[in-house]
Amino acid sequence: MNAPTQMESKTVMTTKAGAAAMPTAERTKLQEGRPVQFVAFKVNGHDFAVDIMAVQEIKAWSDVSSLPNMPPYVRGVLNLRGNIVPIFDLRCRFGQGLTEATRLHVVIILLVQGRTIGILVDAVSDILKASSDLLRDLPEQGDGRDGCVCGLLTAGDRMIALLDPARLINQSLTAIAAHQGI
């Protein structure tokens, strides 16, 4: 388990709801050279980042209510001020086993395609500002396990995988539908 690195894990950060409502998939394509901000986080020692515009807030892990007959990476649902939010375990989603979640783990609440979802990660590490020149797009790879990574970002000597939340939710929902037999 990784301890939170640079950022206090309990920090709650909220972006403007209106801005977060922008279609993330389009934004992460990043054709022009304008700078984009990302929330960087760690999952099982690996660096990931997600477009800050998709991030609604960051909160500490708290117990969730599990949903029946779900793939293990669906940890359950959380009450976010009356909104029922499903929580995805990213480590498990990437096939690296369940996260043993503690109060020090972090849930990033994302607004994607009109859905509010949460991703369980080890820690939020940084807010990155990157010009799109430093980004390399990765095409969607069929049903690949890490198909929800849409690009690579170079920050110093680190290589950060850019998460596309829209791909994450779409692929997960397809898998869940198959899993449930509907």
Partner: peptide, 12 residues
């Protein structure tokens, strides 16, 4: 509280 708008139908 419906939850399908954030997720999907869960059997049962």
């Amino acid at each position: 509280k419906p939850f399908e708008q954030n997720f999907t139908h869960v059997r049962g």
